[in-house]
């Protein structure tokens, strides 16, 4: 699903954020990405989402080389990708329903179909009753769940998350991670950047550690199962 082949990323005016990184994530895996801040976690995710391009090396997503994705093709590429952000990036002037439905509207689905899928996604994150609320009226944990619902609503094969529990207390964090586990159980490949080592330990999934842009450790946890 994800394959990094000797990927380096250098930002102008600073050193390599990633250097010679080779990494493979199979379809259906759930992988945690850890490391200090500045270790290259965010850069790695940005390369997957085509927010950044590698300086050297190749990134293949779903067997497709990202270097072959032109600027114009990026939107279509991103529609096969679910992204969860630390600050959830919800549109504050739109309802929960509109936020979750945004990827479907962009993909050009009919209203009826959008409604059906949005409610299914909201049901999965346990917030079906909030579809008419504005994001600001929700708690931080609920907002993050809405962010996840938006990431999975179009049923992308791959979901990436950048510190999705960064702003949450331990209980809420576990809840969010369990949510990711459930989506993983039905086949979605999930890559989560996080520094919540205790929580990751508890979930017992594969953990990839980056240090100074290089692979520092890659522990294959038990194959997908209940946390």
């Amino acid at each position: 699903m994800i394959r990094f082949q000797q990927v380096s990323k250098r930002y102008p005016g600073s050193g390599d954020a990633l250097s010679e990184l080779t990494l493979e994530v199979d379809a259906g895996e759930m992988v945690f990405l850890t490391g200090h801040s500045g270790a290259g976690k965010s850069t790695l995710l940005k390369l997957i989402a085509l927010i950044e391009r590698p300086t050297r090396g190749q990134v293949l997503i779903n067997n497709r080389n990202t270097s072959g994705v032109s600027r114009r093709a990026i939107p279509g590429f991103r529609r096969d990708l679910g992204i969860v952000f630390q600050d959830h990036k919800l549109l504050q002037d739109r309802t929960v329903f509109d936020n979750v439905g945004l990827p479907l509207v962009i993909a050009g689905l009919r209203r009826k179909e959008v409604g059906k899928r949005v409610r299914a996604a909201l049901d999965q994150v346990g917030l079906l009753d909030k579809e008419g609320s504005m994001p600001l009226a929700l708690s931080t944990g609920e907002q993050q769940r809405i962010g996840i619902a938006r990431a999975v609503v179009a049923k992308p094969p791959l979901v990436i998350a950048d510190e999705p529990t960064g702003n949450l207390d331990p209980d809420l964090s576990l809840e969010i991670m369990n949510l990711f586990c459930r989506f993983n159980e039905v086949g979605t490949t999930i890559l989560i950047a996080s520094h919540d080592l205790a929580l990751i330990e508890r979930l017992g999934r594969r953990r990839v550690e980056l240090k100074d842009g290089r692979l520092a450790a890659d522990s294959h946890g038990p194959s997908p199962g209940h946390a």
Partner: peptide, 29 residues
């Protein structure tokens, strides 16, 4: 719970070139 993901079983091949046509609507099923 599994219901919405049931369509995941579709073959991956047509998906690969979809990115090349960003303005085309994505066939949901």
């Amino acid at each position: 719970m599994v219901r919405p993901q049931a369509t995941r079983k579709r073959p991956p091949a047509p998906k690969r070139d979809r990115g090349a046509r960003p303005n085309r609507r994505r066939a949901p099923r």
